[in-house]
């Protein structure tokens, strides 16, 4: 539709999302190169500042891929991450940027297909929103 290639930073949990990535790899499904993966031991460790820094450096979109709410390896890491993502959404709203530039997804270790899907979901969403005004 348009040739805008959004730059996306994905914070991925090493317990579920990364396993899903490995499964995806085995399925010969790969992520497009405009999605940069940052692997974290638990999404609960991601601070608001980490997410903001990505936008500050010019990312068009950011997402967190972590466990299901009831199967977080560290019990509540993903729930904390969800609250921080919501916090960043509020900040984006306050400075009049589209809060849909950031999102969080719940994955399972075996979901290789889903792992790739969420990346494309974000790419498509950001194609609609357009490039970040922070450049």
């Amino acid at each position: 539709m348009n040739d805008f290639k959004p730059q996306i930073v994905a914070f991925c949990c090493s317990n579920c999302a990364s396993s899903a990535a490995a499964v995806a790899d085995g399925m010969k499904k790969t992520l497009p190169d405009n999605v940069k993966i940052i692997q974290v031991p638990c999404t609960g460790r991601i601070e608001i500042l980490h997410l903001l820094k990505a936008f500050e450096q010019g990312a068009d979109g950011v997402y967190v891929a972590g466990c299901q709410d009831d199967s977080c390896r560290y019990i509540s890491g993903i729930k904390k991450a969800a609250k921080r993502v919501a916090g960043v959404k509020r900040i984006l709203e306050e400075i009049e940027m589209d809060p849909e530039r950031i999102n969080i997804f719940n994955l399972c270790a075996g979901q290789g297909q889903r792992f790739v899907e969420v990346a494309y979901e974000m790419i498509n969403r950001l194609k609609e929103i357009g490039p970040s005004p922070v450049k």
Binding site: I48, L49, L52, K53, E56, I95, P133, V134, K135
Partner: peptide, 18 residues
């Protein structure tokens, strides 16, 4: 420390945007 970082980053994002 955290909140100083968050505010600094937010100010930069908001200003760059404009």
């Amino acid at each position: 420390l955290k909140e100083v970082g968050i505010l600094a980053s937010t100010l930069k994002i908001a200003r760059k945007k404009d």
